[in-house]
Write a protein that binds this DNA or RNA. Structure first.
Lengths: 209, 209, 209, 209
DNA sequence: GATGAATGAGATTTCATTCAT
DNA sequence: CATGAATGAAATCTCATTCAT
């Protein structure tokens, strides 16, 4: 009965692993390729870069769009996890600390997945994707949702001025957009995360009481 | 009756006018269509919306990309003119006034050509364009070029802190990106130009000495 | 006003004609190709045989299936017209005459569009098509609908025995199926229409009172 | 305990049995699937329905077509056996009895393998198959071969009229086609075999002297 | 010039077949 | 042998561009 108790808990563990390895490779390739060549990049290019045949890609993703959505969701959930964790750690600390944690988390993620935000920015303007599943829409809004929550706390805790409350989240996101965009345009490659404290300082000076 | 009048005094003026009427209609259509449907929109869609046949479109623009470039250049030159004029009028006035003029000019242009910035944002992420004609690149950089010039003046005139000088232009652009983006995402439709003074106040509080 | 009354009634008559010429050529090609090579035949083959490019085919038919459906409908409406006319002419004449007219109309159509019935027979077994639009289903049932109407008249007029009434239509169709099928299998090419009286005689002997 | 018993007396029998179990399952699945979804059904679908992996299917059949041919041959040989037996039993009895036996045998087979004739009908129209292996062709002609033999006897024995001799076999097959087809189109599910006497009566009335 | 059907290169997608586990 | 992921040739479909009218 327990003949093979050691390695038989999940009969297909190995295969499952392989499966997810290929899937991850394809997603990683898609991330690179879509970022480098824009959303125009072909499915074949993505497959080749991942080191698999086209058919293999279609074993994992129903169609081109499913691939894109999967990529957005996977990376978004990662950034969401990172943000949740960061804000969780920042816990009861003052708003300034939390804001820095937010900037830091986003920028760190970007430093590691440089390509991803570039794709998000492209997708945001693709009406097609915006209109589709609300899942995609929600995915694309991960950043802003967190930002809104954060500034709501900032206002409640008295750290933020009440007057421009409606602009707060917009500006937080704008600051990120600004630095990310500069980064994508210039090929300069230093990490962005270190900018977090400066963005916080700027934001607080502008928005603080 | 006045059939002949046109080809006496101004032999080609009428033709030119007619030409530019069709051309303008096509550009306007392209602006709408690319903004609504993304850069994937087809040439045929653009032509139909402009009320002309595809063939006609190709009489005015060498190919699809030429159409896009022409659109970018036309609208950019318009925004450049507007910015030049705004900053010209603001002349020797203090930096705060000039900055407000800048924000105001950009946002006014956006209010009139809502679709345009959406397209610019899409193009910025299309590496394809980045690599190609430097004309296009320059076009896309109209906004940032002016912003850089502006903050350089701000620093020189002592209005801006020296510490974060490198971030100034990035943040000015980020603020614009922020509000424009919020506008595109939500369907809210009030004009953006009125936000100019608030953005200025915010920026100065954050970046001013 | 009536400057060009002679040839200006329908401004785009010529183009429309050309259009339908191409469409007809494609349908004719599809008929041949699907009959010769089976439903597996490729869209490209159909296009080439019609002397047009694939893209042209797709200008007229939304997709492969639409082409097939259009073919079935076009030819079915033709056979329906023929049947209606035949039975109309046979008018108040006795059942035997009407039945002969039916057989004759169907077999004549087959003699002229040999390929078509072969395709119908293939489609009848394609569950996919059967399940789709009821239009298709109705199209495929043109023959049996008319047969049912005919034998109903036969029974009412007292020409047909009442006992096997339920089988009548089935057998009429079976007889057609039989001769058509034999024809398709052997490459013998004589016309089938002359068989009509013999089929009638056979049917009446078997089913008549 | 009886592990060894198998490889003593009948060294390979068990293996053969097992083999044929899988093989039969695959053929049965193919019969269902091809009948339900048409000949376009995928190999994978057939394998899954049979409860095996695609690879396993390919262990038993060289390729997709070999599977189809095997199916046709297997079922045809069964129907041939059944027909031979039926006509053998009907032996020296009058033609009417033999014809009923024929109809009965065919329709009984169809009642048990409802799907099969649907497949045969599809294959008959696939020129591809017609051109290929004569084995397939012969297989598909099992029914008509027997029918031809039968009516030849009918004519010789004086039961059938001589005039329409050339149509006899065609009509016998047509009658079968008719009822089978009606059955496939309507979802009515009563057995067909009971129709045998009525078909005989009809045929004899029509074709008998 | 204006038109829009025709074109065909190229993108997406499918699926029979292979092969490492 | 059984498995099912990987493969890539071949099919379907799209769309920028041309050109006869």
């Amino acid at each position: 009965m327990n003949l093979a108790s050691s390695n038989e808990k999940r009969p297909h563990k190995l295969k499952d692993d392989l499966r997810s390895v290929a899937q991850k490779a394809i997603l990683a390739s898609a991330e690179k390729v879509f970022a480098e060549q824009g959303l125009r990049a072909t499915v074949e290019t993505v497959a080749k870069r991942a080191g698999v045949a086209v058919g293999t890609l279609y074993n994992y993703f129903a169609d081109r769009e499913a691939l894109l959505v999967a990529l957005l969701e996977d990376r978004s959930s990662e950034i969401a996890r990172r943000l949740d964790h960061a804000l969780d750690v920042a816990g009861k600390k003052p708003f300034a600390v939390q804001l820095t944690a937010y900037f830091n988390a986003v920028l760190e993620h970007f430093d590691e997945h440089r390509a991803f935000l570039s794709i998000v920015m492209q997708c945001e303007n693709e009406q097609a994707l915006r209109e589709k599943k609300s899942t995609t829409k929600r995915t694309l809004r991960t950043l802003s949702t967190h930002a809104e929550r954060l500034v709501a706390f900032g206002v409640k805790s008295g750290a933020l001025d009440h007057d421009d409350a409606d602009l707060h989240a917009t500006i937080v996101l704008g600051l990120i957009r600004g630095v990310v965009h500069r980064h994508l345009q210039n090929q300069k490659s230093g990490p962005l995360a270190p900018l977090a404290p400066r963005l916080t300082r700027f934001f607080l000076a502008g928005a603080g009481k």
